[in-house]
Computed example of a mutant assay.
Amino acid sequence: MRIVDPTSGTTADTLAAVAAAGDAPAGALCGLSNSKPGAHDILDAIGRRLADEHGLGPNGLEAKPSAAVGADPALLDHLAAQYRLAVVAIGD
């Protein structure tokens, strides 16, 4: 899995290339919630938009148990094995 910082001007072509690479299911996209209020709704909306506009799907949504702790390494390993692209909620 590659982490892409969307504030750096990531293009649709870059997203499509990331989604097409690797061994995970074609176009697989997930959201990783930091468990803050509103994170699920934001990630759900972003996932729908990326699927509609760029064909990046199916979508999954995972969550950390608390915003106060980092993601468990087992969770990150699971995401890397199942998905090609992740949208991470960090500043909602």
Rank of each mutant, 00 (worst) to 15 (best):
T14K: 09
I46N: 03
Y83L: 15
A86F: 10
A74Y: 03
A67I: 01
G38M: 14
G22I: 06
A80D: 14
H40P: 07
A68P: 05
I42K: 01
A12M: 03
I46W: 04
D52Q: 10
A67L: 02
R2E: 04
A67C: 06
I90M: 05
T11A: 10
A39L: 05
A17K: 08
R49V: 09
P58T: 14
R84W: 01
K64V: 15
S33D: 07
L15N: 07
A71C: 12
A16H: 01
N59K: 03
H40R: 12
G57M: 11
V87W: 09
L43P: 11
S66R: 12
L43T: 12
G27D: 08
P25Y: 08
L76D: 09
A89N: 00
T11C: 03
I3Y: 06
Y83V: 13
A24I: 02
E53R: 13
I42W: 02
P6T: 01
I3H: 07
P73L: 13
L61S: 14
D13M: 01
A71M: 13
L56H: 02
A39Q: 05
P73M: 06
V87G: 08
A12D: 15
V87H: 05
V18C: 15
D23E: 10
R2L: 05
A71S: 14
P73F: 09
H78M: 05
G31W: 12
A17V: 03
T10Y: 00
L29R: 07
A67K: 11
C30T: 08
A63I: 07
A20K: 02
A89G: 06
